[in-house]
């Protein structure tokens, strides 16, 4: 396992990257939400991520599970609506998967636990035009890439982001059957889902940070059985794969 201080650094970097990405996209997310929701998704997530950045900066906590739980808890209290419990509550609940620290296996477990909680809480499945449409293919792809295809984590994450991107595109032509947009019925057709879109942005931001970090200390740690060696990692960079 990598030192906690480095894991904390990675979490902090991921939080900053997601916060910056959401800030950059908040107007666009709100536009998407005005078409089929209540026009607050961008602003709410932005407020939430700003609070997360502050919360992480304000704590000396180094335990990764506690830090990730704090991220979720802050989102729950700051985002509100349905996105608060969906994003924040699911992160909180899945944070226990990092009890033994962050390694490749625990990121897979975290992703699966997060997806399961989002599905359970929101009651949505693939095809309902929700964040689940981006999340499900991303999580399944990540797990399969690691466990079956034995790809290094970075390559697996890059594949997951691709899958999420296709999932987001898939939300445009379909009719919403969960969430606020479902009230519009057929009128929701032709609009991209804001929750799926913000999910993709988060994953993309995390991929950016992972790309930076997996050049650093984390992937050189020989104690983690699934950590890639240098050559595999080079193959697995987002540009290099496929």
């Amino acid at each position: 396992m990598v030192e906690e201080s480095i894991q904390r650094e990675a979490i902090e970097a991921a939080v900053h990257a997601v916060a910056e990405r959401i800030e950059a996209e908040k107007t666009y997310l709100t536009e998407l939400d005005s078409a089929i929701g209540d026009a607050d998704h961008g602003a709410n997530l932005h407020r939430g991520m700003q609070a997360v950045v502050e919360a992480i900066e304000d704590t000396d906590e180094e335990d990764p599970a506690a830090l990730v739980k704090l991220v979720g808890r802050t989102l729950v209290s700051e985002v509100g609506g349905a996105a608060g419990p969906l994003y924040g509550g699911s992160i909180m609940s899945a944070s226990t998967e990092f009890a033994e620290g962050i390694d490749t296996a625990s990121t897979v477990a975290f992703a699966e636990a997060y997806l399961a909680k989002v599905e359970d809480r929101g009651g949505a499945t693939v095809g309902d035009k929700t964040m689940v449409d981006a999340l499900t293919p991303a999580v399944h792809t990540y797990k399969k890439s690691i466990e079956q295809d034995e790809l290094p984590p970075l390559a697996a994450l890059a594949k997951a982001v691709d899958a999420a991107e296709r999932g987001v595109a898939f939300t445009t032509p379909i009719r919403a059957s969960k969430g606020r947009a479902s009230y519009l019925g057929w009128r929701s057709v032709g609009h991209q889902d804001p929750g799926a879109t913000s999910t993709l942005y988060c994953l993309e931001a995390i991929l950016d940070v992972a790309t930076e970090y997996l050049d650093g200390e984390i992937d050189r740690d020989a104690t983690s059985p699934t950590v890639p060696d240098e050559s595999a990692e080079a193959d697995g960079s987002p540009e290099g794969e496929e």
Binding site: G80, G81, A82, G84, P85, G89, M92, R121, G179
Partner: peptide, 13 residues
């Protein structure tokens, strides 16, 4: 929906 999700989350907490 919002109430149910927030109460569910609180119950879990």
């Amino acid at each position: 929906e919002g109430d149910v999700m927030n109460f569910d989350t609180a119950a879990e907490m």
